[in-house]
Nucleic acid binder design. Structure first.
Lengths: 154, 154
DNA sequence: TCTAAAATGTTATAATATAACATAATGAGA
DNA sequence: TCTCATTATGTTATATTATAACATTTTAGA
């Protein structure tokens, strides 16, 4: 599903965006946080916390769960990564500067998750909120299925 | 958020519906499965697997995790309950006879989850699938926020 | 009744996440 | 520059969620 032939470029772009966002927001983009974000982006698909832990360079930080979860919390809070609840896994946000509501197409074939922003969907959610006198705060929308590439591979 | 003044009636209705569905499908609605479904329905909000475990009558089944997870798996597979991934919790399906795509409004105030079926939302998901050449199989859509009742309580 | 399949029992452990408290690094104001 | 409050990280332990693997029991149909 992924279409970046030079994934290194994606990673670099994401890290640079993170630097800008943290600078602008007075946030500290520490070595650890950078390392975790880089691992998230280096993974082509959603990555699990304990896989990040396994891959974390011990010269950067203590390789224990709180280390990773704290870094992930920071990245989540500041819109740099998303958590996919249905997988207990994490993905980099592909447009962190404009972190509006988005959703994910998760392919069971290749394991990748495509981040989408479709105003139709978001509008439908907002409408449903109004109809039910419900005030939405956060949305988890994860669509599991098969991407185009994987449908062809049967 | 919930509007059933006689929640006992909800529970009874749900259990009766389950009997019909299982009979029709040649499925075995055992004592254990019935007990677990009843506990799910008895809880006003989404309930966690280990809370079910705590409440499970030891005269009905062995009070161990596999017991509960197997029963939940059965109920999930047959559309009698839903799992809310964002909470790791379970709720009874309120229209198990017509188990189409639905979604949840989860109130952070009262902890309840309202099950909704809005064709607009489902259509928007289908459309987004087509636009991305993606074949959806299952949808996780959980909207967290505040229900009308709880908005008033400030 | 016999038997295969389904359900449940049982024990252990995997996978995911947080609590609680200690130490270190940072940066803003004196 | 020094101080010190804040933020970040280290460390240990444990809570929470879920499954593996194999044994036994129950069930429905031949």
């Amino acid at each position: 599903m992924h279409n970046c032939h030079t994934h290194n470029a994606c990673i670099e772009t994401a890290l640079e965006a993170a630097v800008v966002i943290c600078d602008d927001g007075g946030l500290r983009f520490t070595k650890l946080r950078r390392a975790v974000l880089e691992l998230v982006w280096t993974s082509h698909g959603p990555i699990k916390a304990y896989d990040i832990l396994d891959q974390l360079d011990s010269s950067i930080a203590s390789v224990t769960p709180p280390t990773v979860y704290r870094a992930l919390d920071f990245l989540l809070e500041n819109g740099l990564v998303h958590k996919l609840s249905s997988l207990n896994a994490y993905v980099g946000c592909s447009h962190p500067h404009r972190h509006h509501e988005c959703y994910f197409l998760i392919c069971t074939g290749c394991g990748e998750a495509m981040e989408c922003c479709n105003s139709g969907l978001v509008d439908a959610v907002a409408l449903t909120g109004r109809q039910n006198n419900f005030k939405p705060k956060s949305i988890t929308l994860e669509i599991t299925g098969e991407c185009g590439d994987c449908q062809g591979r049967h």
